[in-house]
């Protein structure tokens, strides 16, 4: 996931009677030219991915020595590349599956942790009255200003050596190398500013009466949070969960920095970035590997596109 947001995108709701520009235009000037241009662009946009899919399905000879479009004259397809990439073989020893599982093992917690922590934080900022809540909200929002790159070196040091001020250790060396923990923690930290911002925007609009009634009934904040706010916030939470999952799944920078390239913890993106360099000539295997890597986000994307778009419109995405 590739976009970054800092701002709710202010889009007014379409008018209820459905008389929009779109409606009129459709009735008055459904233009064949517009359709033609859109179809051309759509084809241009789709061809590269289609080329990847076709190449990954061709035997090694044709895949390496001829263009994928020759498949129309030489329609020989095979699943052998996938078998080799998944099962491991002479060239890709061990196969891609360990990395594939790493990606899941990294992305599932790295999507849930920041969501839960950000939901709690957003609730406090919106509904627990305290001095400085607005200032704190803007400070958290402003932290989006910090590019990932700023935090990488110090965090790496923290995970590897611990932290000390002078000789006094604040956080000891936790020996976290070779585990998923640095990746989970790093992704959680980097996700928080945007997550808090989006969820706060959503929660602040929940009906005030509902909260006040609950307080009058003597419910604690923990009760209100669990019984009222969480269930009502499911749409916002779902949108962000999808973003965060896709973002973590597709991330390379955090992965390379905190996981290295070992099959123990490195995700599939790090593996792909490596093999592009070292198996440059094995096009048929690289394309099969790449397709395995993108098929998960594509499934998530097409299955949950509605949530995805809603999230985009509510607050755009992150980086």
């Amino acid at each position: 996931m590739s976009v970054e947001a800092h701002e709710i995108i202010p889009i007014p709701q379409p008018p209820k009677d459905d008389v929009t520009i779109g409606g009129t235009a459709r009735r008055t000037l459904s233009s064949p030219w517009a359709s033609a241009v859109v179809i051309v662009i759509t084809v241009l946009w789709t061809i590269p991915t289609f080329g990847l899919l076709v190449t990954s399905l061709r035997p090694s000879g044709p895949a390496t020595n001829s263009g994928w479009w020759t498949v129309f004259t030489d329609p020989e397809l095979t699943l052998q590349n996938y078998a080799e990439v998944l099962g491991g073989g002479e060239i890709v020893s061990g196969g891609i599956l360990p990395y594939f599982f790493n990606s899941f093992a990294i992305a599932i917690p790295a999507a849930i942790f920041p969501l839960v922590i950000a939901t709690m934080c957003a609730y406090a900022l919106a509904w627990i009255p305290f001095k400085g809540a607005t200032v704190l909200f803007f400070m958290i929002f402003a932290l989006q200003i910090v590019p990932l790159q700023m935090a990488l070196l110090p965090l790496l040091q923290l995970f590897n050596l611990g932290w000390s001020i002078g000789p006094v250790p604040i956080i000891p060396d936790l020996n976290l190398g070779g585990t998923y923990i640095p990746l989970w923690v790093a992704h959680t930290m980097f996700a928080l500013p945007l997550a808090v911002f989006l969820l706060h925007n959503f929660m602040a609009q929940l009906p005030r009466d509902l909260m006040e009634a609950a307080v009058v009934d003597g419910a604690s904040h923990f009760m209100i949070f669990r019984k009222i706010v969480l269930p009502l916030s499911v749409p916002a939470i779902a949108s962000f969960a999808i973003f965060q999952f896709l973002w973590v799944w597709n991330d390379l920078l955090v992965a390379l920095t905190f996981a290295g390239g070992t099959p123990d913890v490195a995700p599939i993106t790090a593996y792909l970035a490596n093999i592009v360099g070292s198996y440059g000539a094995k096009t048929h295997l690289i394309t099969a590997g790449a397709f395995i890597a993108i098929v998960v986000p594509l499934i998530v994307f097409f299955a949950l596109q509605r949530f995805f778009v809603r999230g985009l419109l509510a607050g755009s995405v992150k980086g």
Partner: peptide, 17 residues
């Protein structure tokens, strides 16, 4: 759709182009 594809995946796709 390309929004869902990682930059690494996209680079491999365009490497073929």
């Amino acid at each position: 759709m390309p929004m869902a594809i990682s930059f690494v995946g996209a680079s491999i796709i365009w490497g073929l182009v």
